[in-house]
Design a protein around this nucleic acid. Sequence first.
DNA 1: TCTGCTTGATAGGGGTCTTCTATCGAAAGG
DNA 2: CCTTTCGATAGAAGACCCCTATCAAGCAGA
Lengths: 296, 296
Amino acid sequence: MIDKLEMFIALAREEHFGRAANAQGVTQPTLSAAIKQLEDQLGVMLVWRGSRYRGLTPEGQRALDWARRIVGDARSLRQEMRVARQGLSGDLRLAVIPTALTVVSDLIASYAESHPNVRFSVQSKTSIEVLNMLENLEIDAGLTYLDNEPLGRVTTVPIYSERYVLVAKAGHPLLGGPVRWADLADVPLCLMTPDMQNRRIINQHLAKAGVEVTPQIEASSIVVLVSQVVNSNLATILPVRAAEIFLKGDDLGSVPLIKPDASHTVGLVAPQREPFTPVLATLLDRAKTLSATLSA
Amino acid sequence: MIDKLEMFIALAREEHFGRAANAQGVTQPTLSAAIKQLEDQLGVMLVWRGSRYRGLTPEGQRALDWARRIVGDARSLRQEMRVARQGLSGDLRLAVIPTALTVVSDLIASYAESHPNVRFSVQSKTSIEVLNMLENLEIDAGLTYLDNEPLGRVTTVPIYSERYVLVAKAGHPLLGGPVRWADLADVPLCLMTPDMQNRRIINQHLAKAGVEVTPQIEASSIVVLVSQVVNSNLATILPVRAAEIFLKGDDLGSVPLIKPDASHTVGLVAPQREPFTPVLATLLDRAKTLSATLSA
DNA sequence: TCTGCTTGATAGGGGTCTTCTATCGAAAGG
DNA sequence: CCTTTCGATAGAAGACCCCTATCAAGCAGA
């Protein structure tokens, strides 16, 4: 039963029988049969049938919610028992928005030290993807903005507030002192792509300041942006925390962006599934500690 | 997997392999094997082994919590799909404390009228049993006191406040006007058995009034108490709502018990398992309506 | 319209897993 | 010391799962 629910979740995620089967490590006929059996057992049609996948029925949508809960809880059970057997261990899968990637090490460092058997996997994703992956049980927790998109059934731990700086090559004319958002009207910029919430936030601030900006380069990675800044006279806008590791040398400079002194909360999101598994409980705990450290 | 978790829950409840197997409709070797496989899959020992059942290990206790959640959610899934298929239908199992039994009909009446395919089963239990059965998934909801015992992971809907009256045969000397708890010192009484929370509440009030009472008859059923009162010169103490259906004729009388004007909240308890299944959501809704009606 | 490709359903066989009956061994109770 | 109770084990029958191979329906491009 639980296996079938896993397959059903995979199907809803992949929207394709073959791919879903592959993702589950079974063949397509096996997955087809599993879905059919699930429908028989529940007595309702879950998937619109045709010669191809055409989405979930309303009942299927509803069943998907339950399936995620059941499968998630079953995994929690297994994980917790493994912890009971051999101490904190296993994989902890994180998805993180690009601008929060530097915080991951702060979050993980002490954890990894005291629990060497826990392995981490971190992937850079958009804030929407983070929430989707959380819902689809593809990750155990995420780092993302807490105060913008509706978050759904999750636990959150705020970690820090994002403040923005303008980053440019040393000697850039604007690096003299604080820069207002309104001053950015004719500054050549490179920015995140618009699918990133960071970019949307920056757009909001620019719009509020009455400025329209057409960045010459857009990228979904901070590294690309910073490289551009180093190798051209473009400037970029980054959260302080994301920028600071690039500012160690002398070739780049930064100034705070003010008026408004914009700030957005970034924090940990995890499934709302009490009681938390030990691995996750520890992570949440570290996040709280980190939050206290950073705001001190 | 889910089947095995069901068997595990049954074993924890019955504390006996044979009985648990019987309750699950399988043979004892099957259940033994299922538990063993569960232990193998989870890699931990769940049950203290010996020549007989000796309780759960700490891991087993923890696993039991998850098992209840998973099995409960799986049932919710099945129930909700059945509702999607054929409208509100199925069984709704209630456990109710004796003094709230008369409220059940108020709660059920309008429900049953608009949803004739939903069948109800009601059993009279102590408040502790109500909570245990809820935890063990043996009932879908209960009616009990909300403000005394710790309730655990449940949703509650307050329905009414219990107030107490002294019930006696017409002509009983105390029936003239309101009676204080302190006046009950030498009154011959029949009361609920001490395993009933109602009795424990009454004891508290009596103790607080400095009165010690040794009831001549104890019973776990209100019918027994009232029959006694009719056929002897014993009096009893009942919540108004429980007493009133016996007061229609002329042979019994009642007076309020005052100082203190004791009151305890009685309401519906149901598993905390959002989203609620349609059948349960409807019941919670009716309970809220009823609560408004009764307090009006 | 024909052809080729994609996608999901179906058929059939091999292997595993489940559950039964029958029986055993250990512990508890008289 | 004997009996009873309880759970584990053995072995066989049957159910179930998952695979490979194949088919049928749509869709797209020529």
